[in-house]
Amino acid sequence: MSAINNKDNNIIQPENPAGEVALRCEKLVRHLGEGEARVHVLREVSFSARRGSVTAIVGPSGCGKSTLLYLLGLLDRPEGGEIWIGGRDVAQAGDDERTAIRNEHIGFVFQFHFLLPEFTALENVMLPMNRLGRWPVAKRLDWARHLLDAVGLGKKTHRLATQLSGGEQQRVAIARALANQPSIILADEPTGNLDVKNSAIVFDLLTRLAKENGQAITLVTHNPEIADRCDRVRTMRDGVFVD
């Protein structure tokens, strides 16, 4: 499972500046809903994630964990506050800039995998690399194969997403999240849809690969066992961190 650090010339060796703050937010504010149904979801939340470290965000349903994750991942816009990625406040950046940052610096893993069912495992992993176009095609292919090998799917690279089990699909999603060697991995209940055995496999993979590559992992989870195994646990309640 150490293929990711293969010394082969074709394989990209990621930088590993462990300890550096990869992501930081200050006083994020967000409401959801309209009119009477409008809810104050995040109340001036501040947070940071360091490279090589795994942070779990826990809390009851509706406390704002996922909303914070989407804001940190630039999928949503805050009404107030700052989001610092790569030394820049990008909270109010334009759509194109936010999209480019997501492509290059952020990897997502969601509860429901969200693989493209018409594409093979290999093609799914290659999608973010093809969009970024940083490397030649041959190098992208090698890297995608190594990532799939690293998550234990080296022999299923050409299977369609629909021909893989739930656990396998989530492992493809992890490989895809790592494809562009982002500095930040954001995972929204990555094991929430898996059984105990697969949950452990997926979590171990995610944290090990990300740590090896010096990525800052922030995951939202309801699973206390998963949270206990993280480097840091932040608890949210009613839109604020309570620890």
């Binding site: 999928l75 999209t99 492509n103 997502f108 969200f114 693989l115 999608l127 973010p128 895809r176």
Partner: peptide, 11 residues
């Protein structure tokens, strides 16, 4: 699928 493409950097 559109959402995941957008999340991985498709404009």
């Amino acid at each position: 699928e559109i959402a995941i493409l957008r999340s991985m950097g498709f404009t």
